[in-house]
């Protein structure tokens, strides 16, 4: 399996004080990589940088082994990389189908090429139906829909645009279990079709259900990259719920002579 996307020595800062420092990461084709971070904003920042939404302050992004010079959402979409970054919103006041279609394949035609609602809806029907979204929702402006549907619509957009790679930031957050299952099943389908999927999530169960690899991100740095056979769900839980924090804290307390707690693994 060759790497579709790779980042090396990446540094960036984003919303909520999130930052990345010297992050190396690869996304092989036909695989699902789960990104588990101590801070959801840090994991989201990786998605944003790879999707061209936030420019890194240092580091290199490679596409199929070739370093990219300019990288923007447009470049990413043209390379077949769809991303659903949670802070990325739908266009206000416009029917949702416009947010899903613009930037995609239909938008890469000449400016005067026709773009009719019926054609756009027909093109979106299959992808949105897979995630349980109805055509009537696509005709509404985002203000008329519940907030959890916004995230799902962006996930549908990412899968629709991402033939090469799909980058998902907390795609199952706030979703009922039935919808979460649809999203994870769609990710598995994409993997089977050879797409590289990055699943940034705080939900270990959802990551464990589908992922082939697990990347642990701690305070903006990669803590570990583990294959599915190299770890267990319980270990991932411990890592997610502060094992590294506790080790660091115990060490500092010992140095200060104030703590009797022994570091645990």
């Amino acid at each position: 399996m060759s790497d579709v996307l790779a980042i090396a020595g990446l540094a960036a800062s984003g919303l909520g004080g999130a930052r990345l420092d010297g992050v190396d990461l690869t996304l092989p084709e036909g695989s699902i990589t789960a990104l588990l971070a101590d801070s959801p904003a840090s994991a989201g920042l990786v998605v944003a940088v790879l999707g061209g939404l936030i420019a890194p302050t240092a580091g290199r992004i490679s596409l199929h082994g070739t370093p990219v010079r300019a990288w923007s959402p447009r470049h990413a979409l043209c390379a077949g990389i769809g991303s659903a970054w949670r802070p990325l919103g739908l266009l206000p006041g416009l029917p949702v189908w416009r947010s899903l279609v613009l930037g995609g394949a239909l938008d890469r035609r000449p400016g005067l090429a026709p773009l009719r609602e019926s054609v756009a809806l027909a093109g979106l029907a299959l992808e949105t139906a897979r995630l349980g979204l109805g055509e009537d929702e696509l005709r509404q402006p985002p203000e008329a829909l519940p907030v959890d549907r916004h995230g799902l619509l962006l996930v549908a957009r990412a899968f629709g645009a991402g033939g090469t790679a799909v980058l998902l930031d907390e795609p199952t957050l706030d979703q009922p279990i039935e919808t979460a299952a649809l999203v994870l099943a769609r990710a598995s389908e994409a993997r089977a079709a050879g797409t590289a999927v990055l699943l940034a999530t705080t939900n270990v169960q959802h990551a464990w259900a589908v992922a082939d690899r697990f990347i642990l991100l701690y305070r903006g740095r990669i803590l570990a990259v583990l294959g599915r056979t190299q770890t267990r769900r319980e270990e991932l839980y411990r890592a997610m719920f502060g094992a590294q924090d506790y080790q660091d804290l115990a060490l500092q307390l010992q140095r200060a002579g104030a703590g009797a707690a022994a570091p645990t693994s």
Binding site: W85, L94, V101
Partner: peptide
């Protein structure tokens, strides 16, 4: 048309329009 829809998107929110590609 493609261009008309882009203009509507730009009018709605230029930042989001850029982020949507």
């Amino acid at each position: 048309t493609v261009m008309g829809n882009r203009l509507l998107a730009l009018r709605a929110d230029p930042r989001r329009a850029r982020d949507l590609g």
